[in-house]
Design a protein around this nucleic acid. Sequence first.
DNA 1: ATGTCTTTGTGAACGCGTGCACAAAGATGG
DNA 2: CCATCTTTGTGCACGCGTTCACAAAGACAT
Lengths: 237, 237
Amino acid sequence: MATGRSHRPATRSRGIPEATVARLPLYLRALTALSERSVPTVSSEELAAAAGVNSAKLRKDFSYLGSYGTRGVGYDVEYLVYQISRELGLTQDWPVVIVGIGNLGAALANYGGFASRGFRVAALLDADTALAGRLVAGLPVRHIDELESIVADNQVSIGVIATPAGAAQEVTDRLVAAGVTSILNFAPTVLSVPDGVDVRKVDLSIELQILAFHEQRKAGEDDRQEPDGDVPAVMPA
Amino acid sequence: MATGRSHRPATRSRGIPEATVARLPLYLRALTALSERSVPTVSSEELAAAAGVNSAKLRKDFSYLGSYGTRGVGYDVEYLVYQISRELGLTQDWPVVIVGIGNLGAALANYGGFASRGFRVAALLDADTALAGRLVAGLPVRHIDELESIVADNQVSIGVIATPAGAAQEVTDRLVAAGVTSILNFAPTVLSVPDGVDVRKVDLSIELQILAFHEQRKAGEDDRQEPDGDVPAVMPA
DNA sequence: ATGTCTTTGTGAACGCGTGCACAAAGATGG
DNA sequence: CCATCTTTGTGCACGCGTTCACAAAGACAT
Ligand SMILES: NC(=O)c1ccc[n+]([C@@H]2O[C@H](COP(=O)([O-])OP(=O)(O)OC[C@H]3O[C@@H](n4cnc5c(N)ncnc54)[C@H](O)[C@@H]3O)[C@@H](O)[C@H]2O)c1
Ligand SMILES: NC(=O)c1ccc[n+]([C@@H]2O[C@H](COP(=O)([O-])OP(=O)(O)OC[C@H]3O[C@@H](n4cnc5c(N)ncnc54)[C@H](O)[C@@H]3O)[C@@H](O)[C@H]2O)c1
C-alpha cells in the first residue's frame, strides 16, 4: 500500500473476502507442515503449490491480512502461522458439542484433527438412552436433555449435527435456543436458522452427485451415443 | 429461448454453470421429498424455499436444463426429478470403492444415502491385513493390493479416500493408474492428479475453522477489547 | 554505495454468479 | 372468445473472485 500506510491496520480484519477466509485454513495447514520441518521462510510460489492454489491469489489473500512478507525473500513461516491462527480465531479454545453419536458422530468424536486446532469436544449428545453413559473416544455420551445446561455451562458456541435428517431441524432449534451460533450440519437437510447464526454443511451425497455429473460428461465425450427412448411418458402439463 | 426452440436440446447439457450443477442435488432432494408426498406440481417459489435458495436463481438454473415449467402453474415434480437425475447421471449405476476402512470409512460404508442414488459400493479396501475379510456394512474388507483388479473388473470410476493423510496421495496415484477418474477425498491433504481427473474434498477441520472465524467476529462486535500485547516477538525478517 | 536479482503487493481487466424486475406464456373462469 | 391472474424465463446490472502483469521494495554481493 503506497498511500497512507498506517502502522495498525486495526479494522481491516473487517472485509476479508469470504473466499479468502475459506482458503486460510489451507494455507495454515501447509505452513504448519513447513514449520514442523523447521523451514524458516517460504515464497508465495512454493506455498501456493503446497496449498494447491494460484500464487497471485495467495499473495492477494495475504494482503488482506497485512504486509507480512519480505520482498525478495518470502514469508516468515512462524510469523504467518501465528497471524493466520489469530485471524481465524484459533488462538482461543472453542468448545464444541456433537449431537447424534451414531456411525458418523462416533467417527467425528474419534477424529484427532478436532483437538489439534483449538477445538475441544465439550460433550457428546444422543437421544438414545441406551447410549447414555457409554464411552466414545474417552468421553461419556450424555442424554440430549442435558443439551441446554451443557451449552450454557461450557459456553459452547459451535454445534455439530450428526443425527438423522428428520431430527436435524429440531436439534438445531434447541442448539440455537441454548445459545449456539455456529452449526456444522452433516445431515442431508436444509436448516433454517435466525439471523446471526452460521450454518455450514457437509454432504457426501451431494459431492458424489457432482462427481457423477462430470463423470457422465467425460464418458459422453468419447462415445456419444445417447440411450434415447428412455424418456418416460410423463410430460409437463 | 423463444427463437428456434428445438425439440431435443441435445448438446445444451454442455455449458451448465458449475454453481448450478452444485445446486441440482439440492433441488433433487427437495423434489424427491415432494414426490414421496405425491405432490404433482410445485412453483419455483415453493421449491426454492424448500431448497433454501432464491427463486430467481432456481428458475435460471432450470432454464439451463430446458423449459420444463408451465407458466401459471409451476413444475411437474416427477418430470423434473427425472430430468435432473438424468442430467446428473443418476439414471445409471456408479460403482464406488472406499479406501481406508477406519472410523470414518466404516461410517461411510454404513451410510444409506450411498445406495439410494445410484451409487453402489463395489468394494471396501484397507491396507491393514487384520481387517481383511471382516464384514463392514455387509461387505468384506478387501486388501489394498486387490485395488487394481477390483477397479478394472467393476469398471469403477469413482473412488472415496478415507485413509490417513500420509497415505492419501499414494492411494490416489494407484486409483488413477487403475482407471478411476473421480475422487472424493476425506483426508486433510492436497491431492495432485493428472488432467481429466476430478477431485472433491470434504474437510471437517476447514469447515470448523471457517465457523470459528465468523464466531470470533461476532464476539468482537460487542465487546471490542483486543487482547493486544499478545503478539510474539517474532517479526518478519 | 551501487547494481543486480528475487519476490512481494496490487492495479486493472475479465468472467462468473446473483438477484431484480418484467414481458410473455398460458391456465382458468366467465 | 376474452379477460384476468399466476408464474415462468430471462435481460440486465452489479458485485465478487480470479488472474495477469509489473512497478517497487528490499536482500545480497561487490
Ligand atoms: N455415516 C455417514 O458416512 C454419513 C455420511 C454423510 C451423511 N451422513 C448423515 O449423518 C447423519 C448420521 O449418520 P449416521 O450414519 O451416523 O446415522 P446413525 O443412525 O448411525 O446415527 C444417528 C444417531 O443420532 C441419534 N439421534 C436420533 N435422533 C436424535 C435426536 N433427536 N437428538 C439426538 N440424537 C438423535 C440416534 O440415536 C443415533 O445414535 C445422518 O443424517 C446421515 O444422513 C452420514
Ligand atoms: N474420523 C473423522 O471424523 C474424520 C473427519 C474428517 C477427516 N477425517 C480424515 O479421514 C481419514 C480417516 O479417518 P479415520 O478416523 O477413519 O482414521 P482411522 O485411522 O480410523 O482409519 C484409517 C484407515 O486407513 C487404513 N490405511 C492406512 N494406510 C492405508 C493405505 N495406504 N491404503 C489403504 N488403507 C490404509 C488404516 O488401516 C485404517 O483402517 C483421515 O485422513 C482423517 O484425517 C476423519
